[in-house]
């Protein structure tokens, strides 16, 4: 139990702790550290996108430039994946991308909490996407939306089989979408923490081991750079898959 390998718990960073206990009709609605970092993410995005663009200058400053780059980046992603028609979902995709991106990035700062390292959060975001796809698809196309599961030109013998595969693949979408983001964040943070524990253990160890302590420290530096890439990439993947699924709602039937 007191072995050095377990002395520093790499899982502790994911614990959700209530900061203010709130009960709403018997439901726990406590303001937790997770809620706090959601608020911080919201404030950071608001600062960038609303304070940053307040001057509305023709020649943008740094902050406005960053806001415009974010806008154009997501807008181009939506246009190239879901077409001009997909731009009606642009605010949703943009909100999701910014929320995930800022959560991932802020989570990389030591002593912070990573909102997207909680499966329930990533699953809720994926559920928003899938529910939007289903509700919009049914409202827009009615039963024609179900052609999503019935590809044309398939022999009648194979049809039940194909439909089953299509339904399974559709149902697995929110799961893969949420687990991908959650697992990436979780694994990255655990790895960083484990390497950090190595440094502490090597320094705390006897003489010769302490000399090796810079090695895991260098690994942390490299891994942090890699995690920055992952933080962006996972937000981008989440956004682009959102666009792909929304494209199905816009154009069902392959």
């Amino acid at each position: 139990m007191a072995t050095p390998g377990k002395a520093i718990d790499p899982i502790h960073q994911f614990i959700v702790e209530p900061l203010a206990r709130i009960q709403l009709g018997g439901v726990d609605a406590s303001f937790t550290n997770a809620s706090l970092f959601m608020v911080i993410v919201l404030l950071a995005i608001t600062f960038l996108m609303i304070i940053g663009t307040a001057q509305k200058s023709v020649v943008p400053g740094r902050l406005q430039s960053a806001a415009e780059i974010s806008y154009e980046f997501v807008a181009n992603t939506v246009r190239s994946t879901a077409g001009q028609e997909g731009m009606k979902f642009f605010p949703l995709v943009f909100s999701i991308f910014m929320f995930v991106f800022f959560s991932n990035m802020i989570g990389l700062v030591p002593y912070t909490f990573t909102v997207t390292s909680q499966i329930i959060v990533t699953f809720a975001l994926a559920a928003i996407v899938i529910l939007t796809v289903i509700i919009y698809g049914l409202a827009r196309h009615g039963t024609h939306f179900l052609h999503l599961f019935v590809p044309s030109g398939v022999p009648a013998v194979l049809l039940p089989f194909i439909v089953m595969i299509e339904v399974i693949s559709f149902v697995s979408r929110p799961i893969s979408l949420s687990v991908r983001l959650f697992a990436n964040m979780l694994a990255g943070h655990i790895t960083l923490k484990v390497f950090g524990a190595f440094v502490a253990m090597l320094i705390g160890g006897s003489g010769a081991a302490a000399i090796l302590s810079p090695l895991p420290l260098l690994a942390i530096v490299a891994l942090t750079g890699f995690e920055l890439l992952v933080a962006f990439l996972q937000a981008y993947v989440f956004a682009i898959l959102t666009c792909v699924y929304l494209n199905d709602a816009l154009h069902p039937g392959h």
Binding site: V16, P18, I22, L24, V27, D28, A29, S30, F31, T32, A34, S35, M38, V39, V41, L42, I45, T46, M49, I50, P91, L92, F94, S95, M98, F99, Q118, I120, V121, A124, L125, I128
Partner: peptide
Amino acid sequence: APQLIWLALIFGALYLLM
């Protein structure tokens, strides 16, 4: 439950602001 409630509040606010 608390995470979902706060996510709904904050993501809703974010969506509206954006």
